[in-house]
């Protein structure tokens, strides 16, 4: 089986992998929290988040806390499946290489 083919192109970027990893183990994460953990710039994070949102891998929740807008993100079921498949493929790649 060609495991390289099973790897999801959407997760090739390190930042996107980071976003998915963090959201996989945390329910709703705010933009600033993600930024702090992944240590990336606002613009960079925002563009990767919207790419993942377009693929329907993450969902967005916009709220106002007082007057401050607050955006949180969570992984969707299909995002979870895609990410887990990607992890399996990575694992298999390592196994076949040994």
């Amino acid at each position: 089986m060609n495991w390289v083919g099973e790897l999801n192109k959407a997760f090739e970027s390190r930042i996107r992998l980071g976003i998915m990893s963090v959201l996989r183990v945390n329910d709703w994460m705010e933009f600033t929290e993600l930024k702090e953990i992944l240590q990336v710039t606002d613009g960079n994070l925002a563009s990767h988040l919207s790419a993942l949102e377009k693929l329907d891998f993450i969902q967005v929740r916009k709220q106002f806390i007082g007057k401050k807008p607050n955006t949180s993100y969570a992984v969707t079921t299909s995002g979870q499946q895609a990410f887990d498949q990607h992890l399996d493929a990575l694992e298999q790649l390592i196994k076949t290489r040994e």
């Binding site: 992998l17 990893s21 963090v22 183990v25």
Partner: peptide, 19 residues
């Protein structure tokens, strides 16, 4: 193409750091 092992280690560490 990043090394798959390195990628997995990365993912693991990000999951740990965030949770």
């Amino acid at each position: 193409k990043p090394d798959p092992l390195e990628t997995l280690t990365d993912i693991r560490s990000m999951m740990e750091r965030s949770s």
